[in-house]
Design a protein around this nucleic acid. Sequence first.
DNA 1: TTTCATAGTATCACATTAGAAACCTCCTAC
DNA 2: GTAGGAGGTTTCTAATGTGATACTATGAAA
Lengths: 123, 123
Amino acid sequence: MKDCTIYKTMDIIGKRWTLCILLELYKGDNNEKQFNELKGMIKGITPKMLSTRLKELEEQGIIRKRVDSTALPARSFYSMTESGIDFIRIIQDIKKWALTWQFDNPKCKMSECKYCTNTVTSK
Amino acid sequence: MKDCTIYKTMDIIGKRWTLCILLELYKGDNNEKQFNELKGMIKGITPKMLSTRLKELEEQGIIRKRVDSTALPARSFYSMTESGIDFIRIIQDIKKWALTWQFDNPKCKMSECKYCTNTVTSK
DNA sequence: TTTCATAGTATCACATTAGAAACCTCCTAC
DNA sequence: GTAGGAGGTTTCTAATGTGATACTATGAAA
C-alpha cells in the first residue's frame, strides 16, 4: 500500500464526477437530495456512475443516505456529513485557484457555488 | 465540452502521481530538481509516467523545465511556477482534511510537507 | 391493467490509463 | 571500445474506468 496521505486521498476524491456530486449536494438550501434530482442536475452522468460514486462517498463517510420507506415507492435522500461539508472549502479553493491560473469563467467567478445554477453540460 | 470549472480542473490535477510530483518539487530548499532525482524520491513511479506527468504540468504552466545544455550530457531541471506554488496550499489543505477525517498518519500529521522525508513506497 | 415515477442494477463494449521491460542517445571516464 | 549515468522513449499488455442501453422492483394513479 502506498503510504502517502495525498496519494491515498486522491484515490477517493480524484475520480470523475465525485467533486461535482459533492458540489450539487452542497448547492441550494435543502440539505437532502434524491437520486433522480442529482441525476437531473449533473447532466451527462449515467445512473450507473452516480450510483457507484454515491456508494463510494457513503463508504468513506463523506455523504450519508437516508431511506424513507414510509413513502412509497421508497425514497432515498442523500446529504453531506460533517466531513463532506468540511471538504467544500477545499473545492472552493480549487475553484478559486483554477479561475486565477487556468480558466476564465466569469459565471463561475461571480457566483458562490451554493447558489450557482450552472450544470455540467453534456459535450 | 464540460462547462464546470471544478470538473475541468480535476482533469488536470486529478491524475495519478500529479499531486505527489508537485509535493516533491516543493520539498526541501532547492527549488530545482532533476528527472532521476524525482524518480528516486517517488518510489514506484515509472519513467514513462513521470515523463508524461511532467509534460502535462509544464503545458498547464504549473511547472517549468530548464535545460542546461552547457553541462554535458544536458541536464533538465524542473521547478514550480507561481501557479504551482499557489497550489501547494490546496494540497496542504487536502492533507489536513484527510488527516482529520480519513486517515491516521502521525508521521504526516507532524511534519510540514516541505521537510517531510516520506516517500511514496511501492506496494 | 396499463402506465408512470422512483431508485436503482445488469450487461456489454469501448477507451483510457498504468505498468513492465527494453531500448535509445549523448557524452564522459576508464 | 566499453561501461555508465542522465534523461528520457517505445512497445506491449493488463487493469480500470466509463458509457449506452436495457432492465428490474415497488406501488400509486388513471
